[in-house]
Design a protein around this nucleic acid. Structure first.
Lengths: 174, 174
DNA sequence: TCAATCCCGACGAAGTTCGTCGGATTTCGC
DNA sequence: GCGAAATCCGACGAACTTCGTCGGGATTGA
């Protein structure tokens, strides 16, 4: 039913990021089998199609997907899923990574602060941004299409947590 | 003048995080010299004092600061700045780290998704969360009080920033 | 021609963020 | 004791962002 979930926490990506990533995963699953229509994806993922239309524009403009117009048209990836880093996808959908204005990846935004030069706090946000960037770029779209158990990715070195977390063991609460 | 800056990007922390961190840094600078009033901090950092009053409640409830009421009162840190990890500070201010609802640190929120169990995308957000968590917890409040590396003009925006100093390599800079 | 689909711009409602306001309470200095 | 300085607390509201909806146009295959 796609209930609107409360934000409940920090560092929260918008639904653009969420839906867009799911869209890309869906495209990756059908990669090589011709274009997939947004109608199919919207139905399969239970997402509003008109909204997906908006998101996909960003993905197209970033060169991540290409479209085929007309009947039996749709979208498909322009590259192999193994070569698409999730950092690209997220940046295309949500803009440059910027936990704080003074730490934007985009220099045009970074200069606005006025505190630059004596602001020691900046270090924190830059570190956060880099950690985020590294994490996102170390995962490819292909990593997300593999069925859960088979996934055997390298550890990004950042976390001490091997994440064998039993997500499947969680009892669904509905 | 504290102009409200446009969001311009993803993963954006709220001003609670920004102001709260700056508040903590200011307290760290005066650590050991008795309580500092919000009035002083608000003036020095050019932040609205009534708003700081709200933020500091979270910090007090988290046990990071303690208050002295009455005239010449104010706030001070409960621990040495070297022992306060920024992860604690940010969590106190903004709640559990959760780039996505399905990847909240707080298990109470994580169960709401309904897609858990077959959702492969979850892996991405969990990794992002862990990277974030690690980055925040690897910086202490003391790291942010040290004066900026001398003669290092630091034009932000060069995204290929090597992040020089490992925190553990304690060069006792004073 | 008809239907499916992408494409595009505008719009609006819900929710969150970012504070403001007014007052109550505690404590220090006189 | 009195007043000033400060913390404490709850309520409120305006601006902004997000999350879509809507209507229509353009393009293509059958």
């Amino acid at each position: 039913m796609r209930t609107v979930l409360p934000s409940s926490g920090a560092v929260h990506f918008s639904t653009r990021g969420e839906y867009g990533v799911r869209l890309m995963v869906e495209l990756a699953r059908h990669h090589g089998a011709g274009p997939v229509s947004l109608h199919e994806i919207a139905e399969h993922e239970d997402l509003p199609r008109p909204y997906l239309e908006q998101l996909v524009i960003s993905l197209r403009e970033a060169g991540l997907v290409q479209s085929t117009r007309g009947a039996h048209g749709g979208y498909e990836l322009t590259r192999e899923p193994e070569t698409i880093r999730m950092g690209e996808v997220v940046r295309a959908l949500e803009g440059p990574l910027a936990p704080m204005v003074c730490a934007s990846e985009d220099p045009a935004h970074a200069g606005v602060c006025g505190r630059t030069g004596f602001c020691t706090v900046n270090l924190l946000w830059v570190r956060v941004r880099d950690a985020l960037s590294t994490a996102l770029d170390s995962i490819t779209l292909a990593d997300l299409t593999r069925p859960r158990a088979a996934a055997h990715p390298f550890h990004a070195g950042t976390s001490a947590d091997p994440v064998p977390t039993p997500v499947a063991a969680a009892t669904p609460t509905n």
